[in-house]
Write a protein that binds this DNA or RNA. Structure first.
Lengths: 219, 219
DNA sequence: CTTATATACAAACGTTTGTTTACCAGACCC
DNA sequence: GGGTCTGGTAAACAAACGTTTGTATATAAG
């Protein structure tokens, strides 16, 4: 996991300093935001002095970019795995997606929030990379929603409204729910992250009007 | 509306400088965050020099506090009005709450986002004020949810789960949906803020399992 | 006219910022 | 031993920070 820079795969006693800087910086960006977090605070949290950061990263911005890149790669991978686990029924796919995304943002809420809020402070080309990754995640949800509507598993027709709710709007609503759960959830409230993810999956299925099907247990 | 400081109620040609500073600061806090926004940028946007800000506010923090206070007062007032308009049926109350909150955060997304994200940079007692206001908003939603469950209008029992979804969890999910809509919504996408608010109200009613009742038109 | 008040300005304050530089201790290879 | 590399240190850099100061000007009151 932690690949030390040049050693021949012998695991170092402590996590490598490069990795340590990433973790402490993520925590500080989460608490205070990127601009208010100084290089001196980051390095002090790692037990070294300011100049040392530049042995591992070219700038403070580069540290932020590394954090965001890792978070987005991991979340995309996790969602695609969940999609496969859902089989070919859109409702089961959607439930898996919601579960996985909620779990990711509760278990790794520090990186999750930083990735959502601090990309503005990156140079434009790197900021665009982050936005593209967010768009890919959204597309995964939109495709599953469309599949569920086409197969008649989801129902989004408001009797008081001219047309059905738009798929992109529904996808955004679901994403905002799952992503922001990480901001308030604390595992000490008598509710585990797993239980929260299950409740969210249930709520989202109700939200898209997924009728309980034969084969799903009924209470 | 804009009360100029000393004139005898004759409307000034331009909005007063105190108000102007508030608006420009809000926009800059929204774009770059509080710590990355300098006093010089704020005052330059108002066409004056840095020192002039201190004729109107005691510090940069005080500007942030004024923005947050105004936003929270307005949103609480709007929600309570919506609650009254909903009558005594919990489903109609909930629909009004969702509509109003979504509208507020789309029409005033700048203040809305700043209020949600920048309170960390306030001194502890003022930060607590903001958190208290957020808690009051959450309670409004929780009470309406409880009323709907007690009167049987809402249904939150997951057949695959031991108990029903917790009211506080459902309230958070709804709040995250509405509040964050302001971050991505742009009125140029062929969807007005009103239509978005209506769709969200519909989605939330499905989410809480509100059965369409006699008297609501069916398509 | 005189006086007071509000608000603008330019300039400076001490501090902190991200980053660079020059130097040094230890590990490894031959 | 000597040579090279890695990754640390202390000190310095210009630039930018929030804020204070002294001063000018315009408006309104007495």
């Amino acid at each position: 996991m932690t690949r030390s820079r040049k050693t021949t795969d012998g695991a170092p006693a402590t996590t490598s300093m490069s990795r340590r800087i990433l973790d402490e910086a993520a925590r500080l960006f989460y608490e205070d935001g990127f601009p208010a977090t100084t290089v001196r605070k980051i390095t002090a949290a790692c037990g070294v002095t300011a100049g040392s950061l530049y042995n591992h990263y070219g700038s403070k911005e580069e540290v932020l970019y590394a954090i965001l890149k890792r978070a987005h790669e991991d979340s995309e991978r996790i969602l695609e795995e969940g999609l496969l686990r859902g089989g070919d029924r859109a409702d089961r796919q959607l439930a898996e997606l919601v579960r996985e995304l909620t779990l990711f943002h509760t278990e790794r809420r520090i990186e999750g929030l930083v990735a959502r809020t601090e990309w503005r402070h990156l140079p434009p080309d790197q900021a665009k990379e982050v936005l593209d990754a967010q768009q890919r995640v959204r597309r995964i949800f939109e495709r599953t929603l469309e599949r569920g509507l086409n197969t008649g598993r989801f129902r989004l027709n408001d009797p008081r409204s001219p047309g059905p709710a738009r798929v992109d709007v529904v996808a955004k609503a679901i994403l905002d729910m799952c992503i922001n759960a990480g901001q308030w959830f604390r595992p000490d409230g008598g509710l585990s992250a797993q239980e929260l993810a299950d409740q969210y999956a249930f709520l989202v299925l109700q939200l898209v009007g997924a009728a309980p099907e034969a084969g799903d247990r009924e209470s």
